[in-house]
Simulated assay, not measured.
Amino acid sequence: MTDDLVSTESVIELRIENIALLFDPLDPFPTPSRDLSKTAEDFIVEWARELPRRNPIRLILHIPQSGQHDLSQLQVAFSNHFRQRARRVKGDIDELFGVGRTSLMIGLATLIACVLGGQVAVMLLGSGSAARILSEGLIILGWVANWRPLEIFLYGWWPLARRRKLFQRLAEMPVEVLTT
């Protein structure tokens, strides 16, 4: 294996005065089950987005030496938090596809109705300009009704899938604590 193919580790560094600031103060659960604070999560996620996607990520926490710190559950807490975030995004993807399926059924029914309506217009009004305008307008309307489901199935889920993969990477990252 050449050196070009070996991925290097990407590092996120976070300096914090107190470990408690990493966690949501309103979450009543003990540390391994607590959610990260919005600020800490946003900082980590934004930094991770800028890192190469193929590299594993490692988190280094810089904390002051003074004070009591319960460091034993930090790895579990970070893994639990980001694993839960990945599950939530998976639920968002599933919900989006559900909306897409419903929208597709409505869109296809609308398209069929518009095509049939256009044919009826030609039969009733003849082959004149009014019948063609009405017929083609209905066909355009039928295709426009399918715009949203096509957008969902072709492009709409990509950002969510990328976010889920990022959360999965963050759930696997080792956490290292350095005292200053």
Rank of each mutant, 00 (worst) to 15 (best):
residue 2 T to F: 09
residue 73 Q to D: 08
residue 157 W to M: 08
residue 131 A to W: 10
residue 102 T to D: 06
residue 29 F to L: 14
residue 161 A to G: 13
residue 104 L to Q: 08
residue 58 R to N: 00
residue 27 D to S: 10
residue 118 G to Y: 05
residue 5 L to T: 13
residue 55 N to V: 01
residue 167 F to M: 11
residue 117 G to I: 04
residue 45 V to I: 02
residue 46 E to T: 08
residue 86 A to D: 07
residue 138 L to A: 08
residue 108 L to Q: 11
residue 78 F to L: 13
residue 94 D to G: 06
residue 73 Q to S: 04
residue 143 W to I: 04
residue 74 L to T: 02
residue 117 G to R: 07
residue 52 P to K: 06
residue 119 Q to S: 11
residue 86 A to W: 10
residue 143 W to R: 10
residue 155 Y to R: 15
residue 60 I to V: 15
residue 169 R to Y: 01
residue 178 L to K: 14
residue 37 S to M: 00
residue 80 N to P: 09
residue 135 S to D: 08
residue 58 R to L: 09
residue 128 G to V: 04
residue 160 L to Y: 11
residue 56 P to K: 02
residue 165 K to C: 02
residue 179 T to C: 07
residue 37 S to I: 00
residue 150 L to E: 00
residue 7 S to M: 12
residue 156 G to M: 03
residue 82 F to P: 06
residue 19 I to W: 07
residue 167 F to I: 00
residue 28 P to H: 00
residue 113 A to E: 04
residue 74 L to N: 00
residue 70 D to H: 15
residue 126 G to K: 03
residue 64 P to N: 01
residue 128 G to M: 01
residue 18 N to K: 06
residue 47 W to L: 12
residue 171 A to L: 04
residue 119 Q to N: 07
residue 113 A to T: 02
residue 69 H to N: 03
residue 138 L to H: 09
residue 79 S to T: 15
residue 112 I to R: 01
residue 142 G to M: 13
residue 74 L to G: 04
residue 8 T to G: 03
residue 100 G to C: 03
residue 71 L to A: 07
residue 140 I to C: 11
residue 33 S to K: 12
residue 17 E to F: 05
residue 24 D to E: 14
residue 103 S to C: 11
residue 170 L to P: 03
residue 101 R to A: 12
residue 154 L to Q: 09
residue 78 F to C: 06
residue 164 R to F: 03
